[in-house]
């Protein structure tokens, strides 16, 4: 972990310096201390300053902690695998957000009723479209990516599980909203 700790330690110190000298002073409404009602009180910059100082101390400690001279290699491949997973998740979230309104847009193009998704968000099937497509994509995509192949069984499980979750969350709980219906 020798090399890695040096990278993390210096990264932390660098981030802390940016925070202490750029971010915190530029992006807080009041300074370290502030005078209100003839009384000195702690300002909004104080707590983040302490936090970034801790970050700097932590980074420095990591740099002086006794180094083991056995460098563990951190291979790139697992990162790429995880990046692909994150991409699948992100794609699933995008589908979740836009599938319903998108489909409505298409339906209107084909002469469907002219309305807004906002007003349909509590009606079947609109309220499930985004969640269903996004959920199936996430489960099916991640499982297939990890297994390295596409299987009909995986897709079937994904469909069944997503429908199960809809039944579990939306049907019994009146005030619970499935994504993306709370955004409207």
């Amino acid at each position: 972990m020798y090399r890695l700790n040096i990278y993390i330690g210096s990264g932390a110190v660098l981030f802390a310096l940016v925070g202490l000298f750029l971010w915190v002073p530029q992006d807080t409404g009041t300074g370290l201390v502030v005078q209100v009602r003839r009384q000195v009180t702690i300002g909004d910059a104080f707590a983040p300053t302490i936090a970034f100082s801790l970050m700097a101390i932590g980074g420095a400690l990591l740099l002086i902690e006794q180094r083991q001279h056995t460098s563990i290699k951190v291979p790139l491949a697992p990162f790429l695998h995880t990046a692909a997973l994150v991409a699948v998740i992100a794609f699933g979230l995008l589908l979740m957000r836009h599938a319903g309104p998108g489909l409505l847009f298409v339906a209107e193009g084909f002469g469907g009723t002219d309305t807004e998704y906002r007003l349909l968000r509590e009606t079947f099937p609109w309220k499930y479209i985004g969640y269903f497509l996004g959920g199936v994509t996430m489960i099916g995509g991640m499982a297939s990516l990890s297994a390295g192949r596409l299987q009909a069984r995986t897709a079937l499980i994904a469909v069944a599980v997503t429908m199960g979750l809809i039944a579990l969350v939306d049907v019994p709980f009146d005030d619970l909203l499935l994504p993306p219906n709370g955004d409207y």
Binding site: I8, G9, G43, D44, F52, M55, G58
Partner: peptide, 21 residues
């Protein structure tokens, strides 16, 4: 060292958007 960095990250994350001002 790592423990302190972890604590600091948590503090920074929670301080974002907060404050009295």
């Amino acid at each position: 060292g790592k423990g302190l960095i972890s604590v600091a990250l948590g503090l920074i994350a929670v301080f974002i958007g907060g404050g009295e001002d």
